[in-house]
Design a protein around this nucleic acid. Structure first.
Lengths: 133, 133
DNA sequence: GTTGACTCTCCTGTTGCTGGAAACCCTAGG
DNA sequence: CCTAGGGTTTCCAGCAACAGGAGAGTCAAC
């Protein structure tokens, strides 16, 4: 199948599929006589796999690792788990960061009257060197 | 004062201060005869303001807006509040996204035995077209 | 045979910087 | 006065992970 069919099947934009081929992440099964990228069910499966991994926030590099493990019949699930656990840590860390950000900003927003006067705790809060206080 | 002093005072790398000058976000108060960027207390305050706003995740464009309001004596706090509230929405939305991501990935990681056998719910979960089920 | 859709490669732009190269400037020491 | 060292300038490349568009080739249908 051609790239647009593969694109539809895997749920990724054509541009992205082409990009993944360029960087050697998911290489098409073949090239037609005219140079068209040709995909088969297996390569489409790999594209879906990458799409899902990307949705989870895995980097392209991690996708490469996971893809290797995906294809490796002799893999140990521990290797996969390690990568996933690492990502889980990143997510948790980002969550904590967002939480304190949210709290602090919400605090400022609540303190702001939001009328036509210039006095504004948000502006003041941003102007201050340190965060809350 | 020269750029490195301003950099130290505002807590931003020299490169970043220079970048902000280039894009016209925080322009130095003057240039010396030799072409050196010259900063004063006011421009340093603006740099601090931007640093704080960036820490809150405001984009450069939003920083520009906020900086205008910061300098505008006739601003209405409602304008500031609107921008901050929008950003707060984005944060909350990102939090929800991360939460479901975290839950789903944690679910997979928990289900994975993490030993030397190849069977792996994580790999299986990534290979499946849709998320949970 | 000609239209129209599809595909190719290559280049640029995105966001917010960061690093490096080559050249200038400035000050302190000898 | 000269030199060595820092600091400063500009410009150019690159990061992640693509997206948009130009210009040219290809393919199937009518």
């Amino acid at each position: 199948m051609n790239i647009s069919t593969a694109s539809t099947m895997c749920g990724l934009p054509v541009k992205t599929v082409r990009y993944y081929a360029d960087i050697g992440l998911v290489v098409p099964a073949a090239r037609s006589a005219a140079g068209y990228r040709v995909y088969d069910d297996e390569t489409v499966r790999r594209l879906v796999f990458v799409r899902r991994a990307r949705e989870f926030g895995f980097s392209i590099g991690e996708c490469r690792e996971l893809l290797d493990l995906y294809a490796d019949r002799r893999r140990s699930s521990a290797d996969v788990k390690r990568i996933a656990a690492r990502r889980l840590q990143q997510i948790a860390s980002k969550q904590r960061e967002l939480q304190s950000l949210h709290d602090e900003l919400a605090h400022l927003v609540e303190a702001c009257s939001g009328d036509d006067r210039p006095d504004c705790p948000i502006i003041d809060g941003l102007g201050r060197r340190h965060s809350g206080e």
